[in-house]
């Protein structure tokens, strides 16, 4: 069980470009969090700081009781697995199974555990049937699942998914949803960056909104998507259901399809 604490964290690139300013947040062990915000808001920088790929210019990042400044990325990545935004930045094996197996094997796990984790992760990501396939023969969306499986197989306490919903079809989104549920049962913390607000409202209660390199809101979905100031500052589009509810003059708070359908049915029976 590993908690994550970022305290007044800022990050600037060596040329002085600021990428993140004064971020403070904590993720409890087993918690599921979505990070949303425009391109360039600092989301990817924030998560790269969480797994030690970047070290803060100011402030501290604590992974459990480790300050990431005092540990190598290789060490931190045992606790915090990060799935890259671009799968092609990550994949380097000629077949899917070797790609997934590499992580747990490299961690020095017992062979039985490596086998079990590899099989489990491939199954959970819906890629078992592609075990022998070269990842580059697979569509982008499936390659993304190959990279997710590779990180899940490392069995880290904290998992970061950077835009897993990009390019996913309905079936892919269902696989992701199921995966989140399984990880929650296993008490893993999952931090997900996404632009898909429907996916966010379907699977997340805690939402972190970023804009202009800063945290704008850290709250539940209802409060975030019905807070005009937050939406404007972060240039977020609320989920389609919220927009429909507004067009139908329902009082604020409706986010899921089921809530909206219930509200319409209730109105009808008056």
């Amino acid at each position: 069980m590993t908690e994550l604490h970022l305290t007044n964290v800022s990050f600037s690139y060596p040329d002085g470009t600021k990428a993140l300013e004064n971020l403070t947040l904590s993720v409890a062990s087993g918690e599921r969090v979505a990070i949303v915000g425009q391109n360039g808001a600092g989301k990817t920088t924030a998560v790269k700081l969480m797994n030690g790929l970047l070290k803060p210019t100011e402030g501290t990042v604590l992974v459990g009781d480790w300050d990431t400044k005092n540990h190598t990325t290789a060490q931190v990545s045992r606790k915090v697995g990060y799935v890259f935004q671009n799968p092609d930045d990550q994949i380097f094996h000629n077949d899917v199974e070797s790609e997934v197996r590499f992580g747990p094997k490299n961690m020095g796990f017992e062979p039985e555990r490596v086998d079990a984790l590899t099989t489990w992760a491939m199954k959970l990501c819906g890629i078992s049937e592609f075990a022998e396939e070269n990842p580059y023969n697979l569509p982008y969306s499936v390659r993304k699942f190959v990279t997710i499986a590779s990180v899940l197989a490392m069995d880290s306490d904290i998992i970061i998914l950077d835009e897993p919903t990009a390019g996913q079809d309905k079936i892919g989104l269902q696989v992701l949803g199921n995966l989140l549920r399984v990880l929650e049962e296993k008490q893993k913390s999952v931090i997900t960056i996404t632009h898909d607000m429907e996916f966010v409202t379907d699977y997340f209660t805690r939402i972190i909104v970023m804009a202009n390199r800063q945290l704008v809101a850290d709250d539940n979905a209802q409060k975030v998507f019905y807070n005009t100031e937050v939406l404007e500052r972060s240039m977020l589009k609320p989920p389609a259901v919220a927009q429909m509810a507004k067009l139908l003059d329902f009082s604020p708070g409706i986010l899921s399809k089921q809530q909206l359908i219930k509200a319409i049915l209730a109105q009808r029976s008056l």
Partner: peptide
Amino acid sequence: IQYPHVTEIALQLQKSGIPLSFLPIRDEEL
């Protein structure tokens, strides 16, 4: 395949017995 969100909602409403004059495909048509 995913329907537009409004269409998905409309179809579910239809199944719950609410008649629709047409099937909306844009939010503002609901």
